[in-house]
């Protein structure tokens, strides 16, 4: 991948120029799906954009006794991490890539939740600290399943290169891995039933309680970009290989949209679980399947 294609992927498609409107669109789909499930009309189409611009134009209050630079840095790091993850997705055929970019993608996907943990603790709010502790516990529990699932997908197809992985036809083992990723996505996106870190009505806004104005706008954007990256990762793994760029992009967008719709419907249909139930769910119920997937992937690899 030369510098020009890398920049084009990061800034144009599927990077920022595509990802930011897509993030707003997915945030709208999330809210609209919840509204429709509750027999409401829901927010207008431009609502996430209105919210973003309004928050950008708000004044940040003076905060005593808090590291202002750190507070400002966390949301920016989260946004750049999520945007970088979107930029790495192999949407277009033969768009380049490098050996091991799957590992970089996983690291970048993890960056926003790391930032959320750090942000809650650096805001010195009691609600922020509780939210951060929950996010840390949640992250430890779902990430093992998530990483094992992705590892099993990569090991079953002998590559850590995203583009090759997306081009290869899906094996039954890959479907198992994709199912495990899907189970982890609600926790990664902090939506119901795993909306523990930002549990509204319970700990106010969790790690975001002390954030206001442009910083909050960046958090909202980071959340939207996480939607694009998370749904996009599954979409690229599910989608069959297409030779034409436009068609591949359309399929990617359609699959991501269906995924967002499904996850939002799940969020609207379920209530928030308690932290101990959530942790138990990931450690007891899903870890077995992830271990099964990785062991069979390794077994198949040694046999071939």
């Amino acid at each position: 991948m030369n510098l020009l294609t890398a920049l084009a992927r990061l800034l144009v498609f599927p990077g920022l120029l595509f990802a930011v409107p897509a993030a707003w669109f997915f945030l709208w789909v999330e809210r609209k799906a919840v509204a429709l499930m509750q027999e409401r009309i829901g927010p207008p189409f431009m609502q996430p954009f209105f919210d973003f611009v309004k928050l950008l134009a708000k004044r940040t209050p003076p905060r005593q006794g808090i590291g202002g630079m750190l507070m400002r840095a966390w949301p920016l790091i989260a946004v750049s991490g999520a945007a970088g993850a979107v930029g790495l997705l192999p949407v277009l055929p033969s768009s380049g890539g490098f050996e091991g970019d799957l590992i970089l993608l996983l690291a970048l996907l993890e960056l926003p939740s790391m930032c959320i943990i750090a942000a809650g603790f650096s805001s010195r709010s009691i609600f922020g600290e509780i939210g951060s502790a929950r996010e840390a516990a949640l992250s430890v529990s779902y990430n093992i399943v998530f990483l094992l699932a992705i590892l099993s997908v990569a090991a079953s197809q002998h590559t850590f290169r995203l583009e090759t992985l997306a081009a290869l036809p899906a094996s039954p083992l890959r479907w198992l891995g994709i199912a495990a990723i899907l189970v982890c996505l609600p926790a990664k996106l902090h939506i119901n039933p795993f909306s523990l870190p930002n549990a509204e009505q319970e700990i106010y806004a969790g790690p975001m309680t002390e954030y206001a104005g442009p910083e909050l706008a960046m958090w909202e954007l980071a959340h939207g970009l996480e939607w694009v990256a998370g749904a996009g990762l599954v979409a690229t793994l599910v989608a069959p290989h297409m030779a034409i760029g436009g068609l591949a992009a359309m399929l990617f967008i359609a699959l991501s949209f269906v995924l967002v719709l499904l996850l939002s419907t799940l969020a609207a249909a379920t209530a928030r679980l308690a932290i101990d139930t959530t942790v138990r769910f990931y450690w007891r119920c899903t870890l077995i399947f992830a271990l099964l997937a990785i062991s069979s992937a390794l077994f198949m690899r040694f046999r071939s």
């Binding site: 809210r31 509204a35 509750q38 027999e39 409401r40 009309i41 829901g42 927010p43 207008p44 609502q47 209105f50 919210d51 309004k54 708000k58 209050p61 609600f127 509204e200 009505q201 106010y204 806004a205 975001m208 309680t209 002390e210 954030y211 206001a212 909050l216």
Partner: peptide, 21 residues
């Protein structure tokens, strides 16, 4: 609630006063 649905106006009930207008 569904009958009046303030979200059509863009209204969101926030937990933290820092987020609110």
């Amino acid at each position: 609630s569904p009958r009046f649905d303030a979200e059509q106006l863009g209204v969101r009930l926030e937990g933290s006063p820092r987020h609110a207008d």
